[in-house]
């Protein structure tokens, strides 16, 4: 059985800047993995390599056995099964909430408008924004927008969900509502990779935590071990800084 995601000796440079160095890890089906680390440590780049938003400089990424960066791979097909949630939501501002959720399933999953609408309604209900289904994205709060963005990704019924700092651009009082939706998703058994600064969430929800620093995977382990008894000095320093505030 292939891992949901396998990262093999992944390297990534932007010009002379080395962002990822020889990163290897695997994410099993149904697993919830949080990636933590200081800003600029390459967390987001690692996540964006997982659905091919970034090219790999060396190494490879397999999603359910399919090499994402191979030139023969049809990335569009891979991405249908890998949902992504962004820091800045990236809802389509010219479409209503409902239309945001219906676009991809209608185009790519062959759903009729009625089927897509039913699915969208169910998902909007699940993330608690059904009453906003006919609103425009710019009429929503940040927390509502991010919940809609999660629902939009789920509307494709992906097998994996990637979250790129989903709460980092939210006002503090809205962080909770988004994390609650993500926790529910984790409890439903979704395979999730979450880049986050929310240590509490990582501790509570993740099955495993990866700590990245300066492009390297420094340490990984179950949250209790990584937060409770980190093996590496760099991890300890980071956690000390992070948990102080």
């Amino acid at each position: 059985m292939d891992a949901a995601i396998r990262v093999d000796a992944l390297g990534k440079r932007f010009g002379t800047l080395e962002v990822l160095r020889d990163v290897s890890c695997a994410i099993a089906d149904g697993e919830v993995v949080c990636i933590i680390g200081p800003s600029g440590s390459g967390k987001s780049t690692l996540l964006r390599c997982m659905n091919g938003l970034e090219e790999a400089t060396s190494g490879r990424v397999l999603v359910h056995g399919v090499p994402v960066h191979d030139h023969g791979t049809d990335l569009d097909v891979v991405r249908r099964d890998v949902g992504m949630v962004f820091q800045r939501f990236n809802l389509f501002p010219h479409k209503t909430v409902l239309e945001n959720l219906m676009l991809a399933p209608c185009l790519l999953r062959g759903l009729s408008a009625a089927e897509a609408r039913d699915r969208a309604d169910a998902l909007l209900d699940k993330v608690g924004v059904l009453d906003k289904r006919d609103a425009w994205p710019n009429q929503l709060s940040g927390g509502q927008q991010q919940r809609v963005a999660i629902a939009r990704a789920l509307a494709m019924q992906p097998r994996i969900m990637l979250f790129d700092e989903p709460t980092s651009s939210l006002d503090p009082e809205m962080v909770g509502e988004v994390l609650a939706v993500m926790q529910q998703l984790a409890e439903d058994g979704m395979t999730m990779v979450v880049v986050t600064h929310e240590m509490g969430f990582a501790r509570r929800v993740a099955h495993r935590v990866l700590f990245l620093d300066r492009g390297q995977l420094v340490e990984e382990g179950p949250p209790d071990q990584l937060f409770g008894a980190p093996r590496e000095e760099r991890t300890r320093q980071f956690l000390a800084r992070e948990l102080r505030d």
């Binding site: 962004f86 990236n90 991809a104 790519l108 494709m156």
Partner: peptide, 29 residues
């Protein structure tokens, strides 16, 4: 914003679908 086409591509839309349904309607305005 690049995030628009990234979001569309991440859903599995092709370049052409992204242009037609996401980027061009916004650019046109």
């Amino acid at each position: 914003d690049r995030g628009q086409s990234e979001a569309a591509r991440s859903l599995g839309l092709s370049y052409a679908q992204t242009m037609r349904h996401v980027v061009l309607p916004q650019a046109f305005r």
